[in-house]
Amino acid sequence: MRTTAFTVLAGLVLLAATVPVRGHHAFGAEFDPDAPIRLQGKVVKLEWVNPHAWIHIDVKKPDGTNEVWMVEGGTPNTLLRRGLTRDSLTVGTELVVDGYQTKDHSLKRANGRDVTFTDGRKMFMGSSGTGAPKDGRDPVDGAKKPPPPK
């Protein structure tokens, strides 16, 4: 099954159907829906910064020359809490990225709509049950999980 960032965000929108979900910025303002892109190349640099991490990859163009592209990710803080640091992704790792180029086409930047290794595996795993604080607890029921659905 093919999973994409579209389903990620569509899911989030469904989840948050009654509140306007606000990220740091609206992706539609930064990236050009008419400039879809697929990139494959080795990591040359990681900017593990807020508000968004940027992964620099060296991409071979059809004419044989190389070009460095910057790929936008999310906040590194959530990954840090799961024990993932800048060192968890080493320079030289080959990645496959699909996304959309910035509206300023001179920049060679794109959103990392789906970032995977060359075998298709996701660069990291999701957050469920991996150290996220157990929210929603209540002193009345302690830290008990609700019973499984019938």
């Binding site: 960032a5 989840l15 948050a16 539609g28 996701k122 929603g136």
Partner: peptide, 22 residues
Amino acid sequence: STGAAGNVGGYNNFWIDPGDRV
């Protein structure tokens, strides 16, 4: 895509850490 991902998708779910409980 709609919402913050405004027709270009956002980024992978592994970056996101919303609440997982009611």
